[in-house]
Design a protein around this nucleic acid. Structure first.
Length: 183
DNA sequence: CTGCGGATCGCCT
DNA sequence: GGCGATCCGCAGA
């Protein structure tokens, strides 16, 4: 049992994801995520995407490829990028909003290893197309929130996009700033 | 029906 | 810093 990591953390409640993607993305920094209650990861870096946002997959409305992004908050939107890597998003807001938060990097609480980049995040967590459209609840994925923050949060433009650069919708734990991509 | 391009990564120079 | 890998939904014809 690695529950020792959860001292000072509480399980998030159902309404956590029923907020704007920016609020959720910011609030996820410093949270602990676990798929199996064996391995625990601190979320270091996230990005917010919304429907009225040219960088977002939901920008042009509901399509077959982005339909999971329009599910209710707490659902997963997992897509394959460049035919090679998966990217993990957690949907926010009410059903039909087309908003989500991309998980960009983690810290393995066992090894202290940093897992930097959304493709690597999915590789480490074992996230793939089978997770797309499922909810955190049905997958038994737990997220815990710190009761007190002991770090600062930086926001920057998002990584790897051509449109929507002016929006500071990337959030990261300032302590790891120089180990993460520049914004 | 076809061609394009993407919320990336790792290896090469 | 540049490029190739490798998939597939969608825009355009």
């Amino acid at each position: 049992m690695k529950k020792v990591f959860l001292k000072g953390f509480v399980k998030i409640n159902d309404n956590f994801f029923i907020r704007t993607p920016c609020e959720v993305a910011r609030d996820l920094i410093g949270c602990i995520i676990s798929l199996d209650e064996k391995r625990f990861f601190e979320i270091l870096e996230t990005e917010a995407y919304s429907e009225n946002d040219p960088a977002s997959h939901s920008y042009k409305g509901l399509k077959n490829r982005n339909k999971s992004m329009f599910l209710k908050g707490g659902s997963l939107y997992v897509y394959l990028i460049y035919g090679v890597h998966y990217c993990l998003n957690i949907v926010t807001g009410k059903e039909g909003r087309g908003e989500a938060v991309l998980i960009r990097s983690l810290r393995d609480l066992d090894s202290n290893e940093l897992i930097v980049g959304p493709g690597k995040v999915c590789k480490y967590l074992g996230i793939n197309r089978k997770h797309d459209g499922k909810s955190l609840e049905e997958l038994k994925i737990r997220i815990y929130k710190p009761t007190d923050r002991h770090f600062y949060i930086t926001s920057t433009p998002r990584i790897g996009i051509s449109k929507g650069r002016e929006l500071p919708w990337r959030f990261l734990n300032s302590f790891y700033k120089n180990k993460l991509p520049k914004g």
